[in-house]
Amino acid sequence: MSEYLDNELDGSLCREIEAHLERCHACKVCMTTLQRTVALCRQAGKAQVPDSLSRRLRELIGTLAKP
């Protein structure tokens, strides 16, 4: 199922799966909920870098820049 959602299957297998999904409601529900799970992960927010980390990284660069 995941390979289907990720477009990692060849065309004929995709068509077989799609034909099955048309007939089997339980599998259709299963595929739809899995697809939504992946979509929600892809929408996960990106946090800003905290000032404390920026400071630590500047200090690290400063230390390494010393000859």
Partner: peptide
Amino acid sequence: VEQAVPSWAALPL
């Protein structure tokens, strides 16, 4: 076995 797509998967994202 679920027979209907639940709302969290059916509604727009």
